[in-house]
Simulated scan of single mutants.
Amino acid sequence: MSAIYIVKEIYIYPIKSLAGISLESANAEEMGFENDRRWMLINSENIHVTQREYPIMSQFYPQILGDKIQITFEGETHEFSINEYLENPIETKVWEDKSEVVEVNQNTSKWFSDKLGFECRLVKINKIGARKHESSRTQETYNVSLADGYPYLLIGTESLDFLNEKLEEKITVKRFRPNIVVSTKRAHEEDDFKTFKIGEVQFKNIKPCGRCIMVNNDPQKGIVKKEPLKTLSKYRNVNNSVLFGTDIVSLNSGIIKVGDEVVF
């Protein structure tokens, strides 16, 4: 009998709020997958910039080419080195978490400023502990990347299928920007996962993920619609938070791959 819980998809999002990259395997680290949300854009007030305010950010497509990241937007490309950054530290926040970042380079910041139409800088978190997130659920503090909260987001296939049954216009899992998609047998059972192993890595479930207006941004077009948040809010609203997927952390480093079994 074949296993039920299998990794179907793996994604990283090198630059916060830009498009993601589908991978066949990924290196799990304490702060999230390698190169996942290690970069983000900040405005002239050092506040992070996301699709919530600028849905067009979904139209910037990154690729990792050796030791470089190449960004494509409306047919134009720009690239920078994964390892480059300027020395001067910048104090910013990701929501309530203080974060220390560094600018990648002035040329890259100008490219993004020109494309988005306002002054911004591309910055990088380049050391463990530069941002810490305290969990109200576990009362523990985690070293995290520039993701909204936790290092990893896991979604079960049945959760999306169940939602799509209720939607007139079907959507893909990319709306929810997961890191790991696993095959499941019932909707939202991933909420109840405790600790589990995928490949070389032990994971711990922290809490179901509360979703925001960003899931209404169609990643293919950069256009905000009413769904799926409208429908989700009818059956997944818990304490004024609309839940979809679950936030997890890794307890060790290692490789996971598409096709790996989820072992409880």
Rank of each mutant, 00 (worst) to 15 (best):
A3G: 03
I4H: 01
K8G: 01
E9L: 11
Y11C: 11
I15Y: 04
L18T: 01
G20I: 01
E30Q: 15
E34W: 12
D36N: 07
S44D: 13
S44F: 13
I47A: 12
T50G: 03
T50E: 02
Q51H: 02
Q51C: 13
E53L: 06
L65V: 12
Q70G: 00
T77A: 06
S81K: 15
I82H: 00
P89C: 09
T92I: 03
K93E: 14
V94R: 10
D97I: 12
K98L: 13
K98A: 12
S99V: 15
E100M: 13
V102E: 10
V104E: 00
S109T: 11
F112C: 01
L116W: 07
E119N: 15
C120R: 05
R121S: 15
L122A: 07
L122G: 04
V123E: 13
K127Q: 10
K127I: 00
R131A: 02
K132H: 10
K132E: 12
H133S: 05
S135F: 04
S136V: 13
R137G: 00
T141I: 15
Y142Q: 02
V144K: 06
S145F: 11
G149K: 14
L160F: 08
F162E: 13
E165P: 00
E165F: 00
E169F: 05
K170L: 04
T184Q: 01
K185A: 04
K185V: 14
R186K: 15
R186H: 10
A187M: 02
H188R: 09
E190S: 08
E190Y: 06
T195W: 05
I198C: 05
E200W: 00
V201I: 10
N205R: 09
I206G: 04
C209V: 04
M214S: 09
V215L: 05
N217S: 07
Q220R: 13
Q220K: 14
P228V: 05
L229T: 05
L229A: 01
R236G: 12
N237A: 10
V238W: 03
S241H: 08
F244W: 06
F244K: 11
I248F: 00
S250M: 07
N252F: 08
D260P: 08
F264W: 12
